[in-house]
Amino acid sequence: MIFAGEALADFLSQSFDDHVKLIFSAEDGTEVMRDYTPRSFDPAKRELTIEFSLHGDGFASSWAAGASVGQRITMAGPRGSFIVPTDYDWHLLVGDDTALPAIARRLEELPAEAVATVVVQTASEDRRQFRSRSTFGVVRVDHPQDLLREIEALELPSGEGYIWCATEAKVAARVRELLVVEKGHGKHAIRASAYWKDGASAHHEKFGED
């Protein structure tokens, strides 16, 4: 979905995993807030693209399915960008459906000399073809346990690499544990986040950024 308008004149998103907060109005007048990744932004046109998963069982999904041209929404952020350099020897991107916009944006922003591996668990029919100037490979699985098995079996490359992960809370915590505790990857070079939590709404959490 594309958002446009003069209010975006000073919009800035410097990191692939930035979040903007969309603020919806429920029927009873209360505010409903959800975090979304800025997929792309055209400063000349002042057009911001955000991807919605139309799974049909969430407030934001239902709003997006019924949105029309000219409809207005309140948006805030990004509050600040966490910049991950692109010059690591290798990059590992791990995620589920909620992480696909950030992963796609990261791959598109990597330089030609970069090397990346993507492990994604998609419960939806989203089997997009990623684009990148970098050399990259993609492993796709259907279930969270399959994703964890892939991470368990993964042999990390030599050299200095950076790992980025965004999934359901328990899965993200386990991915970080596997990579940091069991495989010895440095805490300084991994960012693991919960983009959602089973049984909760509007959940966002980061693990071990110490």
Rank of each mutant, 00 (worst) to 15 (best):
E108C: 04
T74I: 10
P101M: 06
S124I: 06
G161K: 04
P157F: 01
T98I: 10
P157G: 01
A104K: 00
A76C: 08
F16V: 02
S25M: 07
L12S: 13
F136A: 08
L22E: 05
Y88S: 07
A200D: 07
D126W: 08
K45T: 07
M75I: 15
P144A: 13
A116W: 03
T37D: 12
A102G: 13
V20T: 04
R34S: 03
R176P: 06
W90P: 02
V141R: 09
A153K: 04
V181E: 15
H203F: 15
E6W: 05
G186P: 14
P101L: 07
S158Q: 12
A104M: 05
R39C: 02
V94H: 06
Y195D: 13
G159V: 01
E6C: 08
L54R: 10
S53H: 13
Q145M: 11
V32G: 01
V180F: 09
P111F: 09
R106D: 05
M1C: 02
D42L: 07
M75K: 02
V141Q: 09
G80Y: 01
G70T: 04
L54N: 11
G56Y: 00
F82Q: 12
A76W: 09
P111I: 10
D97Y: 09
Q14F: 05
E27G: 03
G58V: 04
F59C: 05
P157N: 02
V94S: 08
I103H: 02
G186T: 14
T37W: 12
W63D: 03
T117P: 00
V69C: 04
R174V: 04
R72N: 01
A114C: 13
L107W: 02
V181T: 15
W196A: 02
H185F: 11
S81T: 08
K206N: 13
V181P: 02
